[in-house]
Amino acid sequence: MKSIREIFRNNRDLLEESEVQQLVSYCEELQDEIIELKFQKTENKELALIDMIKEVIKGCEALDKEQMEHERFGYDAPDYKSTVSYLQRYIHSRCREEKIWIG
């Protein structure tokens, strides 16, 4: 996309015209609206996915820590099956809430 200066580089005097100034102002408003709409469109799902990924990473780190403690002190291993099941339910639940279709 060309900037206003690029468009009028050979005819700078046209920028002084009232109608051209109105048109430039209108185009700038439209650009701002487009940027805002793009942000709103992507913000929700992107933030939801980032939040979900952070929670998954946090859960994995907690599992690693728990595993190390169990190995260190000789306790029984954690119940990974229920943990993975919980993680799957969490992901599917968040996807439904945020209307993210992962298949």
Rank of each mutant, 00 (worst) to 15 (best):
L23N: 04
L23G: 01
V24N: 04
V24R: 07
V24S: 04
S25T: 09
S25I: 01
S25K: 04
S25H: 08
C27H: 04
C27V: 10
E29S: 15
L30H: 03
L30W: 05
L30G: 01
Q31E: 15
Q31S: 04
Q31K: 10
D32I: 02
D32Y: 08
D32N: 11
D32L: 08
E33D: 14
E33Q: 09
E33M: 14
E33G: 02
E33C: 05
I34W: 02
I35E: 00
I35S: 10
E36R: 07
E36P: 00
L37G: 00
K38C: 08
K38A: 02
K38R: 14
F39N: 11
Q40I: 05
Q40G: 01
K41W: 05
K41P: 02
E43A: 06
E43H: 14
N44K: 06
N44M: 04
K45N: 06
L47F: 11
L47H: 07
L47W: 03
A48E: 02
A48V: 06
A48F: 03
L49W: 06
L49C: 09
L49K: 09
L49Y: 03
L49I: 14
I50M: 00
I50H: 02
I50E: 09
D51R: 12
D51W: 00
D51F: 00
D51H: 10
M52P: 00
M52Y: 01
K54D: 12
E55Q: 11
E55T: 04
E55F: 05
I57H: 04
I57V: 15
I57W: 01
G59T: 09
C60A: 15
E61F: 06
L63V: 02
L63I: 11
D64C: 10
E66V: 06
E66T: 15
E66W: 03
Q67Y: 13
M68V: 13
E69V: 08
E69W: 09
H70N: 13
H70C: 15
E71K: 07
E71P: 00
E71F: 12
R72Q: 13
F73H: 04
G74T: 08
A77W: 07
A77S: 15
P78V: 06
P78L: 09
D79G: 03
Y80S: 07
K81F: 06
S82C: 02
T83M: 13
T83D: 07
T83C: 09
V84N: 05
V84T: 07
V84M: 15
S85T: 12
Y86G: 08
Y86H: 14
L87K: 03
L87P: 01
L87D: 03
Q88Y: 14
Q88T: 09
